[in-house]
Design a binder for these strands. Structure first.
Lengths: 245, 245
DNA sequence: GCCTCCTGACGAACGGTGTTCGTTACGAAC
DNA sequence: GTTCGTAACGAACACCGTTCGTCAGGAGGC
């Protein structure tokens, strides 16, 4: 960028680690964290690797395949709980919340899992651990796949919800001058916006929303406590459907 | 396209109903059903209305706003259950499954609801009905918003899963020569693909998946029975968390 | 009746996207 | 030393969302 005395021909470039599938995927994952999922373009990935977009297609079929790999690499950051973390239920809750926070820390990468059943090595590693915990909890063998699928749906959608919240927080922190952009302040802003929507609703057509309006906003959608509450709802539901009908 | 004798100037065009926000949104919704969510471009919407892309921006701020409107219009197709449909639980199950199938019939339109809390009139109509049913089921007032949020997460993610399955079915029906593209055959194909993934897994690193392999595939991921099972799991979980902790 | 003004319509263009093609240049094998 | 397969890449294609400046046609004032 600055070395204007030396021509920046490919020959004068410093080291330039050779391209590889792993390097491409790793660069894309970093970029997802920096600029966001939808802003990760083939051109930007190439630029980060100091090459042109066409060069990426040697290692990756298309953007879809690249993002599928990025998704699995993101899941590599999820540590599996062990016996030291408590009984099966405590471990399952820990695994699920770790998966959610890890995925959400990479923006909307969970979008990859929404139309596809992930089959990458780390996705399978987590699926294995999930089903082992479910079996330990006494879920019927024939129901374990469904239960794991339900938990996966919950993980994916919660990760996307959390990612959207973090993104809002970040953009608000960037534009907000001096006002705190803490979770508190942010929730307050979102709460206010939603509250005005619910507040404008006529009481005769939407009586329940009207009556529950205080609860709708003070509860704080998407807060940590609501997330754990929802997960406990699902696990208890699973326990009451332990056996085949 | 064919009338080559008459110049197709704007002046010679037949009727051309005047543009309007409703007309734009309706055209976009139709297009979503025909070509799929991601293929609905401003240019295609404009073409369907026999105009240019720039003309749309008089009625719609950008593609995001258009799709948000399309989402709510899609929800207009969801009929609310009534007392004739059974008790609160039967009605809630009916409402949720109707929402899922309706959304999924418009491809990936549910993507709109994933980063945003929908606040359109029909979304609010359905939220009102959902919370009323939850209250009828004895869910604590302070928990109703969380419960509704959980159900909404389930609806959205299930709609996207179902939409992906319908899309696969359609493309398979288009390419498949004479082979039946029934749900059975399709499931079979997807099952085979997944089965090979699970089958290649070494038993020592993934013992649970290995042991449960028959259940993982015969169960038929995403089948109707698994969907209703999952919904029942959630509702029973909600019932066991009726009261504030 | 005429003129002005305003607003919906839209052609053209900008900057970006994913992807492909044809050509290089380099390293290994013979 | 020559050949050859292939990674690298510059250029281009067909699109995309969006904006700008122009144009036409109807409403309102004189």
């Amino acid at each position: 960028m600055s070395d204007s005395t030396v021509r920046d021909t490919p020959r004068t470039r410093p080291a330039k680690a050779p391209l590889s599938r792993k390097a491409v995927v790793a660069a894309a994952l970093d970029l997802v964290g920096e600029v966001g999922y939808s802003a990760v373009t083939m051109r930007r990935v190439a630029q980060a690797l100091d090459t042109g977009p066409a060069s990426l297609y040697v290692y990756v079929a298309d953007r879809d395949e690249l993002m599928t790999e990025v998704y699995d690499l993101a899941l590599a950051g999820v540590d599996l709980p062990g016996p030291a973390d408590g009984d099966w239920r405590a471990q399952l809750e820990l695994l699920v919340s770790r998966a959610i926070t890890t995925l959400a820390s990479h923006d909307d990468i969970a979008l990859v899992a929404i139309s596809r059943v992930p089959t990458g090595p780390h996705a399978l590693r987590i699926l294995e651990a999930t089903m082992a915990l479910l079996r330990a909890g006494g879920i019927d063998d024939n129901l374990c796949p469904w239960a794991a699928d339900l938990l996966d749906q919950y993980v994916t959608s919660s990760a996307l919800e959390l990612a959207a919240r973090l993104r809002d927080q970040r953009t608000l922190a960037a534009t907000g001058s001096a006002a705190e952009a803490t979770e508190e302040a942010m929730s307050e802003a979102a709460r206010f916006e939603l509250d005005s929507v619910y507040g404008d609703l006529p009481a005769d057509t939407h009586p329940t929303i009207h009556a529950l309006r205080p609860a709708m906003t003070t509860a704080g959608r998407n807060s940590h406590v609501s997330t754990t509450w929802k997960l406990n709802v699902i696990i208890d539901g699973l326990l009451s459907h332990r056996q085949l009908p």
